[in-house]
Amino acid sequence: MVTLYIDDIQVSVEKGSTIFDAAQKVGVYIPTLCHHPELHTFGGCRVCMVEANGKLVTACRAPVTDGMVVRIDAEGARKVQRMVVELLLTKHNEDCQTCVKDSNCKLQEVANYVGITPERMAMLRRSVTEVEIDESNPFFNIDRTRCILCGICIRTCEEINGVTALDFGFRGEHTAVVTMGNKKLAESTCESCGECMERCPTGALARKNYERPNREVKSVCGYCGVGCGIHLGVRGDRVVSVRGDKDNPVNKGQLCVKGRFGYNFVNHPDRLTTPLIKRDGELVEASWDEALDLVASRFKEIIDESGPNALGGISSARCTTEDNYVFTRLIRSLGTNNLDHCARL
């Protein structure tokens, strides 16, 4: 353990921890834009600058040392912070009302901490680079006028997914998050999992047609056999979002394109909503009683005529375990083991 002093608060942390880790442990806020707990530190935004033993360092990268004296609000650090945040704002789209991240935006949070004054902003030259929003991906957009180049999306794509569809491109003021060959997102190697969008601290990577759910229900994804933990976002009688469950040991919050965005079938107008019975070759609506009576009587007739083995049941790998159990109980109770599901397909 290493003991240090953060604004005179004594804190002991494990060797190899950073100043940022130590500050978090004692609940001391250090602003940052590019740090993400699940990703390697980048140290690009320089907003977490603090003074450690009299030297300016980035808290997210600087390792703690024994007896270290850290001053969070040191003047030199504050000047860097202020300049970075003010200047990022001069390059940032001002229209916060239409931004999905409004009130949930890291840049707003840090700007609020730094304290932005109209006088200072008036001294600075504003220049938001005009770039078209990349709307090619059906699920989320890239709006580069809201991008602060924190690189979180790039690191997410590389470290979390290993897809590496994104990287920094160009230089100087033209620096931008780009795909290989600066192609549109939908034409790139991006697998549309949306992990980057989930972590974007601003509205640069934003969900299309976003609707905030009224409530969330913890469940499991209904697609492949991995069984990712999810939070189903519900608004009224519709599923409007799916979010990975960070506490789930299987996916640790991660989801793929189908799991995160492929929930529309639940709300789809083509859903079957009443039983149907075939009359004169046409399937027509019927009541539950009509339908179930018909099924029961036909099953009985066929069993009576040809024995229970003239009946077969196909259960489902997509239904719940309970559904399957009950299904096997019924089929076997009717006297046959002609029972299978699509395990082999």
Partner: peptide
């Protein structure tokens, strides 16, 4: 310097750009 800035850190990227804009002004 701005043209050759790799763009990863904010002070160099947005700082030199702002300074350049002021100098041009």
């Amino acid at each position: 310097s701005l043209e050759e800035s790799c763009g990863q850190c904010a002070p160099c990227r947005v700082g030199t750009e702002q300074m350049l804009t002021i100098l041009k002004d």
